[in-house]
Design a binder for these strands. Structure first.
Length: 593
DNA sequence: CGAATTATGATTGAGGTG
DNA sequence: CACCTCAATCATAATTCG
């Protein structure tokens, strides 16, 4: 009946080595900026797994740095380790001063992007005068490395040590550095009170203590030695690790700069001058990413703070996402018709079988996998034994599984996962949008997509700006959430350059393009890493520039559902964010000329 | 061999309790 | 403040099926 309560004490933990590695992850570093095509070293031979020096150079690191990082990691095999090494170097070189003011009812943004020494500068407005690491010869670097290592050995987080070294100068003594960090620490502790925001009554906090001897897997863990040790280590790490380098605050309620239901909430923001469009850009990823990820993404995208929005305010299913963009935020309007807002409205057939003790009105996030038939059958058996409502412990267990797997009631005591066409509808896509490919592929494509109504609400401000239509660079297009959103807004698509690796997703977008009788051009490119400055310049010359650069880079190394490779931004796929950043910069640069 | 099926926790943060 | 409960989460990998 209950979930398998096993694996107590079966895992062995090796925290000692892991802690060291995590310290090496700085949580803030400034991006390198790009010049013209001369940064692209096309003569580089790719290694067997397709990762080359130019791949890392493309992320914005200098060539020297890349070579050194590859050497340190014993060749090009371990790209994740190389990226982390590079990010550490970046933190050593420079860390952005995180000045930030929060005005009442709005936010102000202060940019602090400096150009670097690498290959041409892309922002003429900024000078190099406050940049100190103009020639990072090996001796300087290794000296700084030595200091960093010593500080880390003393127990300081690498990120703070790197910041201290940057602030105090390269040849500051260890004493000076520790003093600096001590002062910074106390300042931050005193700074740790800023929290307001009203709360909504969406989830009534009905918390009961439940003591279930059978299905209770938790109580027993508390007396487990490994478990205790692990929790202790976690607490220690939490105290030690970068106290407040991650300044990202996820708002509650998660409504960003406003939702259609509350147009009276007024927000204002000030963007840095160099990102006031065009070109407009729109970047998306999961809101609940590992610590520090959003502040890093933000530091690359001109220090613009993400707009966190949960799609449950636009549809019957939740979808917590962060959006960084330079779009205006006033006079937004929702896509019509307004989609069903509750489970019963979206799936009327379920109403008949819905038990009174299932209090859900919204579905959770639509993911890429569905519950197994064995699980739903176990749940059916757990509930079917009772004439009336099952006991509270059974209810708890069933509800937990329902929430985890987004199950709905489709018969007496019968639960089932959603069908692909239901997911299409909940995400705002037309019926049969993904039809024609395998069920597994459909679920994957849909699970990785935008919620169309949510994105369209943000993009709606483009309509009056581009009455004649727009030219779009769509990165990581997937099944075409951005295209569908723009089309449903009635914004003509003059040209869409779509970059997408998956062939099945590409076909879906292509089919949609034809079936909606688009007048414009749809151009496909299959690899973001191959979209270099030359290619961009060629495209921009052909179409007169891009009005919008839109895309959400891979989230699978950030998403909470990933048990195996939740490696953060440095992960194999999620690191493609740096290509979004690179391409956006190159577009801005080329269009600026 | 592609498609379908199934099992597989950890990391966060909010909020309660003593 | 220490400690706990509760909740959410754009997935991966191994295996089986047809």
């Amino acid at each position: 009946m209950g979930p398998n309560a096993d694996n107590e004490g079966s895992d062995s933990f090796d925290w000692d080595t892991e802690d060291e590695q995590e310290f090496m992850l700085p949580s803030s570093a400034s991006p390198r900026c790009f010049g013209n095509g001369n940064v692209v070293c096309s003569d580089e031979a790719s290694s067997s797994n397709g990762i080359s020096i130019s791949h890392f150079v493309g992320m914005g690191f200098s060539r020297d740095m890349v070579c050194k990082a590859i050497d340190e990691n014993g060749g090009e095999g371990n790209s994740t380790a190389i990226v982390e090494t590079l990010l550490t170097y970046s933190a050593l070189e420079k860390s952005p001063s995180e000045t930030e003011h929060v005005a009442c009812g709005g936010q102000q943004f202060v940019s602090d992007i400096s150009s670097s020494e690498s290959a041409g500068d892309f922002l003429d407005d900024f000078s190099d005068e406050d940049y100190l690491g103009s020639e990072d010869n090996d001796e300087t670097l290794s000296e700084m490395d030595k200091n960093l290592k010593q500080l880390v050995d003393m127990g300081y987080p690498a990120a703070e040590a790197a910041i201290a070294m940057e602030r105090c100068g390269q040849d500051a003594s260890i004493d000076v550095l520790t003093d600096f960090m001590c002062a910074a620490q106390t300042a931050k502790e005193a700074d740790a009170q800023l929290e307001e925001l009203p709360r909504f009554g969406f989830n009534e906090g009905e918390r009961r203590n439940y003591f279930d001897g059978d299905s209770g897997k938790k109580k027993r863990f508390y007396s487990d030695n490994n478990w205790e040790r692990k929790r202790q280590k976690q607490r220690e790490r939490r105290r030690n690790s970068d106290e407040e380098v991650d300044s990202t605050i996820i708002p509650n309620p998660m409504i960003g700069f406003g939702i259609p239901a509350e147009p009276w909430r007024r927000h204002q923001r000030t963007l840095p001058n160099e990102v006031i469009g065009p070109p407009y850009f729109y970047y998306e990823n999961v809101a609940l990413a590992p610590k520090g990820v959003w502040s890093r993404i933000s530091s690359y995208l001109y220090e613009i703070k993400p707009e966190f929005v949960d799609s449950k305010y636009f549809s019957a299913a939740a979808r917590k996402r962060g959006y960084i963009h330079n779009l205006p935020i006033s006079n937004r309007y929702p896509l019509l018709p307004i989609p069903p807002q509750t489970i019963h409205e979206a799936l009327p057939m379920t109403k008949k079988w819905w038990p009174s003790w299932d209090s859900r009105t919204k579905l959770n996030c639509l993911q890429t996998c569905l519950a197994s038939a064995k699980l739903t059958d176990r749940l059916r058996k757990a509930v079917a034994d009772y004439h009336n409502d099952p006991p509270i412990t059974i209810q708890k267990y069933v509800m937990e599984q329902c929430r985890k797997w987004n199950l709905v009631w489709v018969g007496k005591n019968k639960l089932a996962p959603l069908e692909p066409d239901e997911i299409e509808s909940l995400l705002g896509f037309p019926k049969n949008h993904t039809r024609g490919i395998s069920r597994t592929e459909r679920l994957k494509g849909l699970g990785n997509s935008f919620q169309v109504d949510t994105v369209a609400y943000h993009l709606s401000v483009l309509k009056e700006m581009f009455p004649g239509g727009i030219t779009v660079l769509s990165l990581f297009s997937g099944i075409g959430g951005a295209e569908v959103a723009l089309h449903r807004l009635g914004i003509p698509l003059k040209t869409v350059v779509s970059v997408e690796k998956s062939e099945t997703s590409t076909n879906i977008l292509h089919n949609w393009w034809q079936s909606t009788h688009q007048k414009g051009n749809l151009i496909h490119i299959d690899d973001v890493t191959k979209l270099d400055a030359d290619k961009l310049e060629q495209l921009i010359n052909s179409f007169g520039g891009f009005d919008l650069v839109i895309g959400g880079s891979p989230c699978n190394n950030l998403a909470g559902s990933n048990r195996h490779t939740r490696d953060g931004l440095a992960g194999e796929h999620s690191s493609l964010f740096y290509d979004y950043f690179r391409i956006l910069n190159q577009v801005k640069l080329i269009m600026g000329n």
